[in-house]
Amino acid sequence: MIRRLTATALLLVLFSVVLFNVNAKEEQDGPNEYNVSGNTEQTGTAITPPNAASGLQVGDVAPDFTLENLEGEEVTLSDLKGKKVFLNFWATWCPPCKVEMPEMQEFHEKYGDEVEVIALNATASEKKQEDVFKFIEQNGYSYPVLLDPTNQVNDEYQTITIPTTYFIGTDGKIQQPRHIGPMTFDFMEDMKDKLD
């Protein structure tokens, strides 16, 4: 028992040292990355390789996909053509995601007839798929939640950091730069008005 505790403590110390060194190097050499565990003021959660792709760009056609929602019904993105869509990538373990979700709910309640808010869960990163159902039910979120059990759609959209939101216009194209980090209600209103 003591050996296990000692080994666990040693691993935590080593992990902390590595994380500190990575963060210190990033501050000197490139974009900031943060350890957001427990700190909801950070703008995203990720481990990003140095040669990571930059994601889809404004003007790109949003890649089509079909995923199941929490009720087991299939939802296909291209079926939403003609509507404005906020495609938000998130996970239950992501503190910044938890910050924006009440604001997304408020936005959905006010503008759900104008903008389709789709919360696409990085299900392969969850401990258990049931955690997603519990989280949504406990918090009373009513906007559509889709499950990505293999993270195929997350990979296709190159969502290295979550939360990440893509803004898709009625033409099925990405019309505004993707947003990395939690969104506020005011920001979502602004994005709604910028989409055609």
Rank of each mutant, 00 (worst) to 15 (best):
V18R: 04
D193G: 14
T43G: 09
D131N: 15
K173Y: 12
F167T: 11
Y166P: 08
Q105E: 15
D29I: 13
K81F: 01
E100Y: 00
T76M: 05
N39T: 12
G55R: 13
T159C: 15
F65Q: 05
I174D: 09
F133R: 02
I174M: 10
M191Y: 02
T165L: 06
Q138R: 10
V75D: 08
R4D: 13
F133L: 04
N23Q: 15
K192M: 14
T170V: 12
N51S: 11
F20M: 10
A7H: 11
E100P: 02
G72A: 02
M1Y: 10
F20T: 14
R3I: 13
P102C: 05
V17C: 04
M1H: 08
T66N: 03
E71T: 01
N35V: 08
I118S: 05
Q175L: 12
H108D: 05
N151Q: 04
V85Q: 04
G55W: 13
E109C: 04
G169M: 09
K192V: 01
A62G: 05
D155T: 14
C97H: 06
L67D: 07
P63K: 11
A119V: 06
V115P: 01
R178Y: 09
K127V: 09
M101A: 03
E114Q: 14
F133P: 00
G30Y: 02
Y111G: 00
G30W: 03
M1P: 04
Q28I: 15
L87C: 04
T45F: 15
E116W: 01
Q138M: 09
F86L: 07
G59H: 09
L70H: 00
F167H: 09
W90E: 03
G38M: 03
R4P: 02
N21H: 09
E27P: 00
T184K: 02
F133S: 04
K81A: 07
G112K: 04
L147A: 00
P96N: 08
P95D: 08
D79K: 06
Q105S: 04
T43M: 11
A24H: 10
K173E: 15
F135I: 05
E74R: 03
L67T: 08
D190C: 00
F15Q: 10
P182Y: 12
T48P: 03
N21A: 14
V18C: 07
N51Y: 07
V117S: 03
E116R: 02
E71V: 00
A122Q: 13
T6S: 15
S142E: 13
T164I: 11
T48M: 13
F65M: 06
P102R: 05
Q176H: 12
L5E: 11
E100K: 00
I47V: 15
T161Y: 11
E71K: 01
E33V: 13
A9T: 13
N21K: 14
E130T: 10
T48N: 04
A62Q: 07
N139P: 03
N154V: 15
D148L: 06
T76E: 06
G140M: 03
H108T: 05
N139G: 02
F86I: 04
G181I: 09
